[in-house]
Design a protein around this nucleic acid. Structure first.
Lengths: 228, 228
DNA sequence: TCTGACCGTTACAATAATGTGACATCAATG
DNA sequence: CATTGATGTCACATTATTGTAACGGTCAGA
């Protein structure tokens, strides 16, 4: 029905990383590995379908990372935590992210595969669902659960493309996205559409945003961005 | 607070607590967590519908706690023990006490949800996670015990799939569920069905809901949801 | 075995979303 | 301030998504 699912594993034990990567890739997933939370944050996390996070890595734990992903970035994505069995003291507390599951080390490959499959299936593995239920941009609230925007008392439904473009831009305020980049991220790989298509969708989005469309700006020759 | 079921979890691994709490709450239970048996004893244990007890916690074990609950306090309540994998002795003891169930760590969240549901059902507490005994949506009443819907004076029986889809959506009003997500949550892991199947079941459900099917909405490109 | 409830699949019609070309405006650069 | 490429907008065509009827298979109970 769609492309391969992408998994990011953040785990500082490189050997374990490789084993997991190898095995999940042989299951047909696209797996990328990083070895610290900081490295993970450099990725476009929204582009993955599942995060496998070691609980204990360097400075920032897997929990910390998951928290940032969910709270600050407003992304809801399936997370499986990897925890060492007998290091309970080291386990951090107080995260309220929606961990979908966890698995204790050492684990069997089969175990992991089963867990991954289940979590992905449960989560609906659609292109990076986002949570919030809301995320703010000035006085505009994005309701990621309802796929719409709330402006004052108005609730404005967004179509899929409108929503995805807006969510992408809002996730990175101030950053300019070229039409090519927007197309590459939001449209399927095999469909070919003009870059003018982006403009039209932006126009429709702006119309729905009303006055607040002033936040959604263009820089001639470059692309679109959200004004900070 | 209407008929939601209350669960107390006593478990010293706080991260595990959080995971369990989050996931059970999202299933519609009220979940409270404590991190020791002593703390648990300060609660009004009779007010819970289910106890989830870690077998190994600090001074007093989950078993000790369960024993006191049953013998001294004379409470009959469902208990699920959480045990580490290789402590077989504990298991025996657990069953002598009359544990309703046990689950070995690490367990999948889904496994736990299923176990909780089963135990609650068996114990005579209403039924599954979607328990009410009834839950309201506008003027529609869902009778979770009879697996049907009451619209005005009409009683409309729902088939299993119809009921589960409806219950899932009603539990999270306003949230859009993609077809994949619905399939992942309601269908068994190993069966493979088209996503169009969801549509047809939705259609059948709508027909039974009559006029009130207006609450059960679709958003093109996303999925189905209950209008708030 | 028969029967009917339940459920998955398909086909096609109805609806919503999206893409495109034409043209009007705008913005940057000399 | 004039020119030119970039952007905004509209109407309409095209495509994708959804609703629904119809068919067939399975399974449990009569």
């Amino acid at each position: 029905m769609e492309g391969k699912l992408r998994i990011l594993i953040a785990e500082d034990e490189e050997d374990l990383c490789e084993i997991v990567q190898f095995n999940l890739e042989s299951e047909g997933y696209i797996v990328e590995a990083v070895h610290s939370a900081e490295e993970a944050l450099k990725r476009d996390l929204a582009s993955y379908d599942l995060l496998l996070l070691d609980v204990m890595m360097g400075k920032m734990s897997g929990f910390g990372l998951a928290q940032r992903v969910r709270n600050e970035m407003g992304l809801e994505m399936p997370v499986i935590f990897l925890t060492a069995r007998n290091s309970e003291n080291d386990l951090l507390t107080g995260f309220n992210i929606g961990a979908d599951d966890y698995i204790t080390k050492p684990f069997s490959v089969r175990e992991l595969q089963a867990r991954v499959r289940t979590v992905l299936k449960r989560s609906g593995r659609k292109a990076a669902a986002e949570v919030g239920p809301t995320q703010l941009l000035g006085e505009i609230v994005i309701d990621h659960e309802a796929k719409r925007v709330i402006i004052g008392a108005e609730k404005v439904d967004l179509t899929r493309k409108e929503y995805e473009i807006f969510a992408l831009l809002v996730r990175h305020p101030g950053r300019i996205f070229s039409r090519e980049e927007i197309l590459g991220r939001i449209w399927e790989d095999d469909v070919i559409v003009t870059d003018r298509t982006v403009d039209v969708n932006i126009a429709r989005l702006r119309k729905k945003l009303g006055d607040y469309s002033r936040y959604l700006r263009n820089k001639a020759g470059y692309g679109y961005y959200i004004e900070v």
